[in-house]
Amino acid sequence: MPSETPQAEVGPTGCPHRSGPHSAKGSLEKGSPEDKEAKEPLWIRPDAPSRCTWQLGRPASESPHHHTAPAKSPKILPDILKKIGDTPMVRINKIGKKFGLKCELLAKCEFFNAGGSVKDRISLRMIEDAERDGTLKPGDTIIEPTSGNTGIGLALAAAVRGYRCIIVMPEKMSSEKVDVLRALGAEIVRTPTNARFDSPESHVGVAWRLKNEIPNSHILDQYRNASNPLAHYDTTADEILQQCDGKLDMLVASVGTGGTITGIARKLKEKCPGCRIIGVDPEGSILAEPEELNQTEQTTYEVEGIGYDFIPTVLDRTVVDKWFKSNDEEAFTFARMLIAQEGLLCGGSAGSTVAVAVKAAQELQEGQRCVVILPDSVRNYMTKFLSDRWMLQKGFLKEEDLTEKKPWWWHLRVQELGLSAPLTVLPTITCGHTIEILREKGFDQAPVVDEAGVILGMVTLGNMLSSLLAGKVQPSDQVGKVIYKQFKQIRLTDTLGRLSHILEMDHFALVV
């Protein structure tokens, strides 16, 4: 994948999101292997301009796509893939009243899908469409860049269908997702969380590099694949309309690839034109409109599966009536509230959605109805927002919020430890010299600072030695090549209790 991002070429006709291997024109390309080798690009942008032909009021008969309808489940399912879809609609009884809503608040519980998330729908649909058009064949390999849930859905379907599955996901995604993927037989590649989507090191860039190296491999490409919004247009939206008897006044959905909100909203605009569509985008993402909503100094966020630093091709923002931004604290607070007060075992993005819903639905009156999409299960986040310690460490809970008995030293300040200034190293000294210094002084790690004293990161003896043994660096290389740029900081005025929580999850903390 090139470091400079080429513009994806656009073909003359058809839909841009065809499933299957992508040609340089962004659509299915038939021909000899030699032709494909000559024409197939190194990668295709996940934010390529959409060429979708959908228009409100256009006859369904003019759609270029294969459409399906929700099917009634048999008493005995032939395999677990038949437990994807037909998820329950559940009334939220307490939270709406707590925040003064007059309307009825309903939750579409997508964590009841077989793999635990709304992404099971698009995973199965992308595979079925690729099999139907002859792209996927027995023994082929599926590769997908994902925040985890699409990966789980694909790995689940691949396990049943017999495909090899490789999932490329950023490091910030939970260990629970990784464990589930491994249990399903998927191979996992992790990428830096802070890598831009168009960087060769991003999950998108690495996935395309693997595709170019592995024979008979395919990126189904949830960011561009029409099967993504079509899955929701054909099934999720129809289920909502049936469950609500066609009567709903507002739908609120958090947005990642945009397939969920695009597919549902398009069908609702056709069948229930008075329904307002509300999009939820986390602070630090750029999906919301108008652009002024996205202006923030924050560039990272903890909530998973929603928000991006690019506009995915499948996201149709014209069908969203209003956007709201959400933050991590309210997302996790509301997710825990949904679990504790409503018994809905949902993930953090569901918290984002409901946090926005109780604001947006203030305009609705008694007798009206708001539906929220709860995308995934708490299963993926047992060591994250479900953990009091994690919430404390991230600053989303305060010590006084917890009532468990603490040891005698818990409320003492870090400054009472009488710490001395640490050994520091410059980023320009060599790895070999740094190892000598650390061994001589008896230290395992040291902060790396520039000549102005600005902290650049941390270097550890173990990481340097393993990097040297693996051949990633040489003793003569500058130590700046092996620094940890993500590390926890703590102030002298913070409590030892807070430091204790940090050290339970990290090997060190830097006192500043």
Rank of each mutant, 00 (worst) to 15 (best):
P2M: 11
P2W: 09
E4D: 11
T5L: 03
A8V: 14
V10A: 09
G11D: 10
P12F: 03
P12T: 10
T13D: 09
H17Q: 10
R18S: 12
P21V: 04
P21N: 15
H22D: 04
H22G: 03
S23K: 10
A24M: 10
K25Y: 05
G26D: 06
S27C: 13
K30P: 10
K30A: 10
G31R: 12
E34S: 06
E34N: 03
E37V: 14
P41L: 13
P41F: 05
P41V: 12
W43G: 10
I44N: 13
D47K: 05
A48P: 10
P49L: 03
P49N: 08
R51K: 12
R51I: 06
C52E: 00
T53I: 14
W54Y: 08
W54M: 07
W54Q: 06
Q55I: 11
L56M: 13
G57Q: 09
R58E: 12
P64I: 13
P70C: 11
P70R: 11
A71Q: 11
S73V: 13
P74V: 14
P78Y: 01
I80V: 15
I80Q: 01
L81F: 09
L81H: 06
K83P: 08
I84L: 14
I84Q: 08
G85L: 02
G85E: 06
D86Q: 10
T87M: 00
P88E: 04
I92G: 04
N93K: 08
K94Y: 11
I95K: 00
I95N: 06
K97T: 06
K97M: 09
K97S: 15
K98F: 05
K98M: 14
G100W: 08
L105H: 01
L106M: 14
L106T: 10
C109P: 08
C109Q: 08
F111V: 01
F112R: 01
A114M: 04
G115P: 08
G115H: 08
D120K: 07
D120I: 07
S123W: 08
S123H: 07
M126F: 05
I127E: 06
I127N: 06
R132M: 12
D133K: 11
G134D: 07
K137V: 04
K137W: 07
P138E: 08
G139N: 07
T141V: 14
E144I: 05
T146I: 02
S147R: 02
G148M: 01
N149V: 01
T150A: 03
G151W: 01
L154F: 05
L156G: 02
A157I: 07
R164K: 11
I166K: 08
I167K: 08
I167V: 04
V168L: 07
K172Y: 03
M173P: 02
S175G: 06
S175Q: 12
S175M: 03
E176N: 02
D179M: 02
L181D: 00
R182D: 05
R182C: 08
L184M: 08
L184Q: 06
A186T: 05
E187Y: 08
P192A: 04
P192C: 09
P192W: 04
P192H: 10
T193M: 12
A195Y: 06
D198K: 07
D198G: 08
D198Y: 07
S199K: 06
S199M: 03
S202C: 02
H203R: 05
V206W: 02
R209H: 05
K211R: 12
I214N: 05
P215H: 12
N216Q: 08
D221Q: 01
Y223S: 02
R224P: 06
N225E: 04
A226F: 03
A226T: 09
N228S: 01
P229I: 04
P229N: 01
L230I: 11
L230W: 04
D234Q: 05
T235W: 09
T235R: 05
E239P: 00
I240V: 14
K247L: 11
L248T: 09
D249P: 01
D249L: 04
V252W: 09
V252S: 09
A253P: 05
S254M: 05
S254G: 07
V255H: 06
G256F: 00
G258C: 04
G259Q: 01
I261F: 02
I261H: 02
I264T: 11
I264M: 14
K271F: 15
C272F: 12
C275K: 01
